[in-house]
Nucleic acid binder design. Sequence first.
DNA 1: CGTCCTTCGCGAAACGATTCGATGATTGAC
DNA 2: GTCAATCATCGAATCGTTTCGCGAAGGACG
Lengths: 340, 340
Amino acid sequence: MQIGKHITIKDVAQKAGVAISTVSRVFNGLDRVSPETRAKVELAVKELEYSPNSRAVSMITGHTKTIQMLVPDFVNDFYGSVIQGVEEVLRNNDYMLMVCSTGDSQEADLSAYIKRFFDVIDGVIAIPSNANIGNIQSLGKPVIFVDRAILGSGIAAVTADNAGGTYLLTKELIRAGHKKIAVISGDMQLNVGQQRLWGYRCALSDSGIAENADYIACGAMYEETGYRSFKRLMQLSNPPTGVVACNNLICIGCVRAAGELGLRIGKDISLVGFDDHVLASIPNPGITVVAGQTIEMGRRAANMILARIRHKDIKEAEVSMPVELIRRNSIRDLRASPAK
Amino acid sequence: MQIGKHITIKDVAQKAGVAISTVSRVFNGLDRVSPETRAKVELAVKELEYSPNSRAVSMITGHTKTIQMLVPDFVNDFYGSVIQGVEEVLRNNDYMLMVCSTGDSQEADLSAYIKRFFDVIDGVIAIPSNANIGNIQSLGKPVIFVDRAILGSGIAAVTADNAGGTYLLTKELIRAGHKKIAVISGDMQLNVGQQRLWGYRCALSDSGIAENADYIACGAMYEETGYRSFKRLMQLSNPPTGVVACNNLICIGCVRAAGELGLRIGKDISLVGFDDHVLASIPNPGITVVAGQTIEMGRRAANMILARIRHKDIKEAEVSMPVELIRRNSIRDLRASPAK
DNA sequence: CGTCCTTCGCGAAACGATTCGATGATTGAC
DNA sequence: GTCAATCATCGAATCGTTTCGCGAAGGACG
């Protein structure tokens, strides 16, 4: 309608014939206002289509109703799901979501990103890409990690049941008669990498299978890691018959490598993965995975940060979300027919 | 460090022994300041680690250095790529990115989302999910559409060469000897749906192939549409031998349906798609697609909005980005061996 | 030596809201 | 009828900046 100036509280006050402070009081409703005055003001507000300028409000009140979210990138749809959950909750609570990608770089310092926009945010939700978080907790604003936690950082996190997930996955291979099982995991500085490897180890030792150092590959949680490690594993003189891929990207890398090597998944090689994704869900052959509720993880994180903003004294808590095994056709049953 | 109050310009002024306005001037460097004074101030700024409060700045200057981005959702990695490009440019220009998902709903009114945060943004970049854009251009802030344009809305847009893409795709099928070619496209209200269908039609008529109404399916650009339409097409008494899927999701739906029907892509049925995605790029069999530079589209849009913020008088312009054909193995060559 | 002009720095107003203490009107009790 | 208490409303200060107008100092010139 009007391209020019925006309606201010002053305009409303003038139109309603009351003081500025009175208009403010009918909005924030702390103090009592007589019914007639309130009616006059509300009429003016409606006619003028007034809504308070949030910048001005935040100067006084100190809060901006904005949460900053830091993710490694936006292209991985796993991160996308988390953002989706966060944004949903925030929107319903009249908060805004500011996003920032930190990139893959191992040196990216999270606290630098936060400092940059420090004065316009009330809190931070981050998916850290490394353990380099600077003096994040001294910033004085609530921070929550999602998907990955940083051990000993004292920062609350919402994660998947990492160890439980790879345990299930590995057990599934063992149940089908596999003994030579490899794992491809990520950075050991992050809990995801550590815990997912740990679940694999537990499953092995529970079943009395000895670990083989050659079968353990660690890198970063990227497709490249999966691709390279898979090829290396297959070139071993005594290659594994089953592979546990510790995230969606690694799994995709494995599939790509298998394709190039002419290995049929579910027949020549068995593959299971952490996190569900399109490639795994299409029955060709369809890959057995454990899947967490990624959107729900985002929702939880958002609710946690909101709670911390409202009540400053909430202490750290780690939320671990259950994962579910989705059986598909990527495991060859070695009990039926002997290994090739 | 200090949990309590933040450092203000006042603290800097006091420490440097100058007036507040002087500090401001060394920051904004419009007016001249003597070298010694400047040095004193800069020292104080460094020691105190001062940075101006952007809320206060924006109260005066009127701009917030924040762009709002509206997307249907965050899970589709196509949208993710666009966001990635936008965010990259914005970050490098010291702008912030606020995101909001509008959902799939056909009634979602874009201008309502914008109004909600109107006073904290300088401009809007949107991927509209329908043609219901309200009185968006009367808002008085620059708006750019990405991926999809709305015909006759008078709003600038960055899109892929839609017609050109499906033209290439369809031609590729024709070149391999296909004559019975179906297309699955999206909403005809949006230019994507229209133009992609148009490219298919042009390719057909250029090659003297008559259109068959049964072979044209329109829905929404979702997996469900691809899945259903593909199944319907295959149940026709005279089914097509080739299918053009007009976006990544539709293509995924087709692959899923083909799998369920036991049809092998590249053998029993030929499939080509608009937009690249993981499923298409894995050689199993690998799907021929046309791919736009999605991240680049986001970058362009961001640069356009920045330009419009700085120079208010830029008039509308439609940017169409070229697409590239990526040949893989999803087309059966009918010239070599007769159709089964 | 006085005047004028330039340069540098200061103080105050303004942006749009919240909030607290003050004011004036109304009411109730004695 | 007087005084105190209550209630609705108002005005002013405040948040942290930018920006404009003005004054002081100092150099150039007649």
